Simulated assay, not measured.
Amino acid sequence: MPFTGFPEAALDFYDDLELDNSKSYWDAHRDTYRTAVAEPMTALTAELADEFGAAKIFRPNRDVRFSKDKSPYKTHQGAFVPVAPTTGYYVQISAPGVRVGAGFYEASPTRLTAIRKAIDHDRHGPELERIVARLRKAGWEFAGDTLKTAPRGWDKDHPRIELLRHKTMSAMRDYGFADLIHTPALVDQVRDHWRETKPLLDWIVEHGDV
Rank of each mutant, 00 (worst) to 15 (best):
P72M: 13
A107M: 08
A107I: 03
A55I: 07
G78C: 05
F66Q: 12
K56N: 09
K68R: 14
R111D: 08
P72T: 11
I57A: 01
Y89R: 13
V100Y: 01
A79V: 02
F80A: 02
S71M: 13
V98F: 01
D120C: 04
F104K: 04
G101V: 05
Y73K: 10
V83W: 02
I57F: 03
Q77C: 09
I57T: 01
T75D: 11
A55N: 00
K74Y: 06
F66N: 09
Y90L: 10
L112K: 05
V81D: 00
D63N: 10
R59Q: 08
T87N: 05
V100Q: 06
D69Q: 09
R62W: 00
G97C: 08
G78H: 03
V91P: 02
P60N: 11
V91Q: 02
V98A: 03
Y90M: 07
E106L: 13
P109C: 11
G103A: 03
Y73F: 15
V64N: 08
A55K: 01
N61S: 11
V64K: 00
G103Q: 00
Q92W: 01
T113Q: 14
T113N: 12
D63W: 00
P60M: 10
F104N: 13
V83K: 06
V100T: 13
F58H: 06
Y105T: 12
A79N: 04
K117Q: 15
I93K: 02
R65E: 06
I115T: 10
D69K: 09
A95N: 06
K117T: 07
K117E: 15
G53V: 09
A54E: 15
K56W: 02
K117R: 15
T75S: 10
N61A: 12
F66D: 13
V81P: 01
K68N: 15
F58Q: 08
I119P: 04
P82W: 02
D69A: 10
K74C: 11
V64A: 09
P85M: 12
P109Q: 08
V100C: 06
S71E: 13
Y90C: 04
V83F: 01
I57W: 03
R116V: 04
A107C: 01
A118M: 09
T86H: 14
T86K: 14
K70F: 10
S71I: 08
I115G: 05
